[in-house]
Design a protein around this nucleic acid. Structure first.
Lengths: 158, 158
DNA sequence: TGAAATAAGTCAACATAACTGACGTATTTT
DNA sequence: AAAATACGTCAGTTATGTTGACTTATTTCA
């Protein structure tokens, strides 16, 4: 009788997750490098693009990094015209963040690469697999964060 | 008619992948911190544990980092008795790597945490979901790396 | 209205984990 | 004996994160 029982460590999924994520995030690296950006810039650009007008403090909440850490990359993105800031209409202390046309375009290039990898994978799998995958990834998130993430990912992008 | 066609970026999966991987790798962080280790140590320890007697150069191949980078964390793991080195029987230039009892035990603790998260997720999903998930993660890996990864993950752990 | 709280930015110092390039040593191969 | 290989090490650099303290502008509240 095999020891592959309920208590066996899931080395296969642990390792597949590691390699899959590495290659998935590796796609945009080439384009980012060309502009002297790193993954930190990618994450900031992505979430600003997906949440136009987001406040700095809400972006910090999503990324779970410090203000100082965000400050450095955000400054570069603003200086090089990928992101712009506008004072909040209701609360002028806020600096609401938006991607510029240049930032939006670059963001599209990056997500296109990642979408291609995802679509290639899904296309080789049985119908309905994308729902299973979505469900799995969702359940891998900390329980107390799930609703917040659900809110984030269901944003429309017309 | 919606624009959610074949060319739409898969923002949902892109973001789910990001959050899921962050929380997945976050589990071991607590234990690692207590010992003054980081994720780099975790990766080294894990792959040595899974490939007893692995050569340094093969480990570099798996991790895709430089010798200098590996050197630092490996030295710490050896100094603190989580990993031991033995000269190769056939080629004494080699320093074959093994986890010590202490290292093996610690490794088990870490993978237990990650396995629990995986099992909890899978248990809430339809039968056969783990196969779908495995297939998806496998297909997300660079095509030219897949056979190598397949070889790695199918190792038996008695 | 004046004090306290909030949103954001900034300065300085530091830690980790990666990188490049060069060089050394032991051992094996040719 | 020379070349190649496996591994280690030194020095310097970069990207991305951290903590703690402080400033400025603005809003909220007693």
């Amino acid at each position: 009788m095999s020891k592959k029982d309920i208590n066996s460590p899931r080395f296969d999924l642990i390792e597949l997750f590691f390699f899959a994520y590495r290659d998935f995030t590796g796609d945009p690296d080439v384009l980012l490098d060309e502009l002297g950006f790193g993954r930190a810039h990618h994450r900031v650009l992505h979430f600003v693009h997906r949440n136009p007008g987001i406040r700095v403090s809400d972006l910090l909440d999503i990324l779970k990094i410090t203000k100082q850490s965000l400050g450095r990359v955000l400054k570069q993105l603003v200086d090089e015209d990928f992101i712009c800031q506008e004072p909040g209409a209701l609360d002028r202390r806020q600096r609401l963040l938006y991607t510029t046309e240049k930032g939006t375009e670059f963001c599209a290039q990056l997500s296109k690469l990642q979408t291609q990898r995802i679509n290639k994978a899904i296309s080789l799998m049985p119908d309905g697999s994308d729902d299973i995958v979505r469900q799995f990834l969702y359940l891998m998130i900390d329980e107390n964060e799930r609703s917040e993430v659900a809110r984030l990912i269901t944003k429309e992008t017309d």
